[in-house]
């Protein structure tokens, strides 16, 4: 047997792309469970249907592009996109909404740019924003949480998805929406009047956010990503909220805790902002990237047109990531310049 001629390094670490993706999938489980517990099976149906479509679209795109689908499907990245979009979509979304979103995410945002690793924008967020722009009504109607309204069962969830005409969804404004629309009540009074609110933030929302936080912390522990971008984002949101929270007047923007535990804050911080492909690369770059996402999220939430803003903020910062990289290059060993050491 001839000896193999390969160049160093010969050893390889245990990590693989598909393992990374699988761990990200696993880390979403607590959040999905909490969402299901509070809002019913809608999210689960979303995820299941989105995953099916995403894998088919991915296989189709790979085939069209002349790549072996078997090998590339193995990286599980399409599944991650599908799960993230499925979580972000309102529960009890009709099938065509999910289909359009997945098509935009997989075909347009991912494969038109060259597939995994080449996409400048987060596919799940592109899908979400396409839907949000095109179908504002469907995209802003969220189901009421358990405790504030009736929660449909699995069968109804399936009906809502596949025969949207036969299902009259009960919807209720999200806490962020309620706060945004409010211009007369003190925050304390608003809290007392609206059934959506829970202990610190929205009913259900606070627990979903905490669950996503837990999943994110687990990923941090597994060293799937670094703490820089999420922590920077959360810190800036909290800071902005603290700055603009004037004790809870009718014009205030909600307390820091409310913002941290509302909407897609934790989900975005640990599952969207940490998407490596579309974020900045260096440590300093990730701090800047995360901080600016946080800033944009707060600005759009409080001063913009949309109640939640993680998707917009992330897409805008996706644009900026290459520039951030350009200006935050680490100082190479043995080179003079800013940075530590020497």
């Amino acid at each position: 047997m001839a000896l193999m001629r390969v160049t160093s390094p010969h050893a390889h670490g245990p990590l693989s792309t598909s393992a990374v993706m699988q761990q990200v999938l696993l880390a979403t489980v607590p959040g999905v469970l909490v969402l299901t517990a509070f809002f019913g099976f809608g999210t689960l149906v979303n995820i299941a249907f989105a995953a099916l479509l995403a894998v088919s679209f991915e296989a189709l795109a790979l085939k069209l592009r002349g790549r072996p689908p078997g090998f590339y499907l193995g990286d599980c990245s399409a599944l991650v996109t599908a799960v993230l979009l499925g979580i972000a979509l309102p529960p009890y979304s009709p099938w065509w909404l999910i289909a359009v979103g997945i098509a935009a995410a997989i075909l347009m945002a991912k494969h038109l740019y060259g597939g995994l690793g080449y996409n400048p924008f987060n596919p799940a967020m592109v899908g979400y924003v396409v839907l949000l722009i095109s179908f504002p009504v469907q995209m802003t109607s969220w189901a009421p949480p358990r405790g504030a309204g009736e929660v449909p069962g699995l069968l109804e969830a399936l009906r809502a998805c596949f025969t949207p005409g036969s299902f009259d969804a009960i919807t209720m404004a999200t806490p962020l929406d309620v706060l945004k629309q409010n211009d007369a009540l003190l925050v304390r009074d608003l809290w007392a009047q609206s059934p959506q609110f829970g202990r610190w933030a929205g009913l259900g929302w606070e627990w979903a956010n905490l669950a996503f936080l837990a999943g994110g912390l687990w990923l941090l522990y597994r060293r799937i990503f670094t703490w820089h971008a999420p922590v920077a984002m959360l810190a800036v949101i909290a800071l902005m909220a603290a700055l603009f929270y004037d004790g809870g007047s009718s014009a205030s923007g909600g307390s820091p805790l409310f913002h941290l535990l509302s909407g897609a804050t934790m989900f975005g911080a640990f599952f969207i902002v940490t998407d490596p492909v579309t974020s900045a690369v260096s440590v300093r770059g990730r701090l800047v990237y995360g901080a600016l996402v946080g800033l944009l999220v707060y600005l759009i939430r409080v001063f913009g047109n949309y109640p939640d803003a993680v998707a917009f903020a992330v897409l805008i910062m996706n644009f900026a990531a290459p520039f951030i990289d350009q200006y935050t290059q680490p100082r190479t060993y043995g080179h003079a310049g800013t940075g530590d050491g020497k």
Binding site: W96, M108, V130, I133, S134, F135, P136, Q138, G165
Partner: peptide, 17 residues
């Protein structure tokens, strides 16, 4: 029939796409 308007196509980004 009963089409949900796909606003993106009518908005400027749709023109680009």
């Amino acid at each position: 029939d009963d089409y949900q308007n796909f606003l993106l196509a009518i908005l400027p980004p749709g023109a680009f796409i």
